[in-house]
Design a protein around this nucleic acid. Structure first.
Ligand SMILES: Nc1ncnc2c1ncn2[C@@H]1O[C@H](COP(=O)(O)OP(=O)(O)OP(=O)(O)O)[C@@H](O)[C@H]1O
Length: 757
DNA sequence: CGCTATATCCTTTTT
DNA sequence: GGATATAGCG
């Protein structure tokens, strides 16, 4: 039996025990929402609900795995194994495989990742003879994605006056056309992109009521984590599935909604009460994760947002350290300082490296941190960047496998038709594309009918093309008979990939070979587990999930004691003892693009809230006064977010009054309630004996008893005594307003009155 | 056709 | 700084 008494507080228990009907758990960070979800599922299982009748949606595959593991320890492995638990994308891609035929796809449809989608858009832009400067793949995909996430199909897109006039205004009137072709080409290639997985599920449920009913009956209980970051498409899937029994439990925190760029709607969680009248509301107010300092500081930040549900959150943990702010003069120094601090803390407190995380706003910041950690021999693991399955050699091999299963997969074909080199050049490929377009068939179909288009290519080229076709056909035959591992192995060999890589003895070449080997191992692993569990071990079954894997999913056992480097976005839902938030600078965090939009700025602030609340014990923020950005040096100002934290919780941040304010980011029309454009704090206390405009920084070494110094938070004070040596040198200081404090001079930013000439 | 050297663009955040 | 597009040579 699950121990609800000791592991849950009263409110949590309430939400775990009352399993029927709609339930909304809305609560601040670290308050045990995910725990509620986990125990609720465990409770359902222990009450005898079959696992396969429970649908649980998480934000990442990793979150799903961890929840599954946790549930397994509560109720036993056998019980938890058959849960329908995963991301929206992975769960509904499985359902779509079963139902694909109803929608005109095959069950082996390929999933395009964003790179594939962008390449397809690029080629359409070219076909339509549009300016690729105007129609940038990223932008166009963004528009299409946004449309799909709001269930706007190509036709509706073209008919929507609102959308088309927006495109017109942006001088990109042809996006609607591109969308149309994009969708047609996907369909022709038996391809769905990420957003299709949700959009097509909606179409399926809309157009085939009997199928919807089947799944409504299949899933007796539906649970959704991180509900604040669901988009309209996801929202509607859930609403449809829960329509009959309304056994739906969603948990979330509007203050942690950080995926609006992906179409997430905070309204989904705000409107739950309207969608499910008679719902039970569960509020959790105690934060079990963080120190009171962190919780209070995070609350003081988020309260500056206008758009929010007011929530109480308190912590009964110890007060903990103040949030430290470190300033660096360059991005390199910032990295050095962070590495130094991690090293120092790990020594002082015997802390393992896996208790540290370095969080940043953009992936580009990771490199500097990596270098600094490497120099100090601190082990680290990095998330984000390109995942294992996005490496060149892996994508190449996967492309062969994809083409083996789905010959109409144009992006895969284009990728490998001439890799390894087989003398099929750009001219030939362009010609093939052109003719295929003309006859409205896939390139593969064209390859199968070369004789019907005489004179298209030379006899020599035709022979090469035919040879390529036969190669793939051979693979397809193998794939029918053999398991995924055998097939992959033979494809890697016969395609020439292995040979091509074996001739390369540079370190990169060696690492490529290792990667291929690693993929082989993964496939082997897949086959072995599949065989043991009596599941399908053929290639299509392996390939199904590959496009949806991220690098969080290829974690290795040896990674377990390393410092974690990731973006704040990917840190959502995680927790670490010590968190470094680096790059706390204007134009970086908040992102430059957000500066002029109040709502975007609020989202940045929520992101900051997420970052702070990942920490259990300690937060250290860093900023640099110079940094490389796109190859150029920029000189950023400290982030406004630092100054938005009540200084009471901060240690080491103060900017003396500058003669002139930094340039304001706010035009006269935009008013913002609390956020100050720049950090020009006027000292709050009037001090007769210190002229604050003439303060100069002072090095810890130079401080001696009797000195009058100025502290950013505590104002002026008199040094009473000094003790400790080197990095441990401390000063006892009497502050008239705050009493006596002991300051670690290494980190305290102190100022003295400058000499006036 | 294939390879290499040089120019150009970009950059939030992710399933 | 890094990925990608293009030019130019062998
Ligand atoms: N009743 C409880 N007693 C003790 N610890 C708890 C309790 N509930 C949750 N915790 C712990 O608090 C931490 C945060 O819990 P959880 O991750 O479930 O919170 P959350 O609300 O999902 O957080 P976030 O929204 O920040 O992702 C975890 O370490 C969890 O083990």
């Amino acid at each position: 039996m699950v121990d609800f008494i000791n592991e849950l507080n009263e409110n949590q228990r309430e939400a775990v025990v009352n399993t029927e009907g709609p339930t909304l758990v809305i609560a601040g960070a670290g308050s045990g929402k995910t725990r509620v979800l986990t125990y609720r599922i465990a409770n359902l299982l222990s009450k005898g609900v079959p696992a396969y009748r429970i649908l649980a949606l998480t934000f990442t595959n990793k979150a799903a795995r961890e929840m599954q593991k946790r549930i397994a320890t509560l109720v036993g492995q056998g019980n938890a194994a058959n849960l329908w638990m995963g991301t929206f994308h992975s769960i509904f891609s499985k359902i779509l495989r079963v139902e694909a035929e109803h929608l005109g796809y095959t069950s082996n449809f390929t999933i395009y990742d964003s790179q594939d989608s962008k390449n397809l858009i690029k080629s359409i832009v070219k076909d339509l003879k549009l300016d690729d400067k105007v129609y940038k793949p990223n932008d166009v995909l963004g528009r299409i994605s946004m449309a799909k996430n709001n269930l706007v199909v190509a036709q509706a897109y073209a008919q929507s006056a609102k959308i088309t006039s927006a495109d017109q205004a942006a001088k990109k009137p042809m996006i609607s056309e591109i969308y149309k072709y994009y969708q047609a080409r996907c369909k022709q290639s038996d391809v769905m992109d990420f957003d299709d997985l949700l959009l097509q599920t909606n179409i399926l449920f809309r157009d085939f009521p009997e199928i919807l009913e089947k799944y409504q009956k299949k899933f007796d209980y539906i649970l959704v984590d991180e509900y604040q970051d669901t988009n309209y498409s996801q929202y509607l899937i859930i609403k449809r599935l829960a329509e009959q029994h309304k056994n739906i439990c969603v948990v979330g925190d509007d203050a942690q909604s950080i995926y609006s760029f992906r179409g997430a709607r905070i309204e989904n969680i705000l409107n739950f009460r309207n969608d499910y009248p008679g719902y039970k509301l569960c509020k959790l107010e105690q934060n079990y994760r963080s120190t009171t300092t962190i919780v209070d500081a995070a609350n003081s930040i988020i309260s500056r947002n206008k758009e929010q549900i007011p929530k109480k959150t308190f912590s009964q943990n110890e007060e903990g350290d103040k949030i430290r702010v470190m300033k660096a003069l360059s991005d390199k120094e910032e990295g050095f300082q962070v590495a130094q601090e991690i090293f120092r803390i790990s020594q002082n407190e015997q802390a393992e490296f896996n208790n540290f995380a370095i969080l940043y706003r953009t992936n580009a910041q990771s490199r500097i941190m990596e270098e600094a950690l490497r120099k100090r021999n601190i082990p680290y693991k990095i998330y984000g960047g390109l995942s294992f399955y996005q490496r060149k050699e892996i994508k190449d091999l996967i492309a062969y496998l994809r083409l083996t299963i789905n010959q109409n997969d144009e992006e895969a074909l284009k990728r490998i038709i001439n890799y390894p080199r087989r003398g099929i050049g750009d001219t030939t490929i362009d010609k093939l594309k052109e003719v295929a377009q003309k006859y409205n068939v896939s390139i593969w179909t064209l390859l199968c009918n070369l004789n019907k288009v005489p004179g298209m290519v030379s006899v020599m080229t035709a022979a090469k093309l035919t040879h390529f076709r036969q190669l793939i056909e051979g693979f397809t035959e193998i794939a029918k008979e053999e398991n995924a591992y055998e097939t992959t192995y033979r494809v890697a060999k016969a395609s020439g990939i292995i040979e091509d890589l074996s001739s390369d003895d540079t370190p990169e070449g060696v690492s490529r070979r290792e990667n291929i080997q690693e993929l082989m191992n993964a496939v082997k692993d897949f086959c072995e587990t599949a065989y043991k569990e009596g599941r399908d071990d053929k290639l299509p079954a392996f390939l199904e999930g590959v496009a949806l894997l991220t690098d969080q999913d290829s974690e290795k056992p040896e990674d377990n004691n390393k410092v974690t480097l990731m973006t704040i976005h990917s840190a959502k839902g995680l927790e670490f003892e010590n968190v470094f938030i680096v790059g706390m600078e204007e134009e970086l965090f908040p992102a430059q693009q957000s500066a002029y939009s109040p709502s975007a700025l609020e989202e940045e602030r929520r992101l900051f809230y997420v970052a702070l609340t990942r920490a259990e014990k300690r937060v250290i923020m860093t900023y640099s006064t110079s940094r490389y950005k796109n190859g150029n040096v920029v000189y950023p100002q400290p982030s406004r977010f630092i100054a938005e934290i009540d200084p009471h919780y901060l240690d080491g941040f103060f900017t003396p009054a500058r003669p002139s304010m930094g340039r304001s980011l706010h035009g006269p029309g935009i008013q913002e309630k609390v956020a100050r454009p720049n950090i020009t704090l006027q000292p709050k206390v009037e001090v007769p004996d210190i002229d604050t405009s003439k303060l100069v920084p002072i090095n810890g070494e130079q401080i001696i008893p009797g000195m009058v110094i100025f502290h950013p938070n505590f104002g002026p004070g008199k040094v009473i005594s000094i003790d400790g040596l080197g990095v441990n040198k401390k000063a006892k200081v009497m502050f008239p307003k705050h009493g006596q404090k002991v300051l670690l001079l290494k980190f305290a930013k102190l100022y003295v009155q400058g000499h006036t000439n």
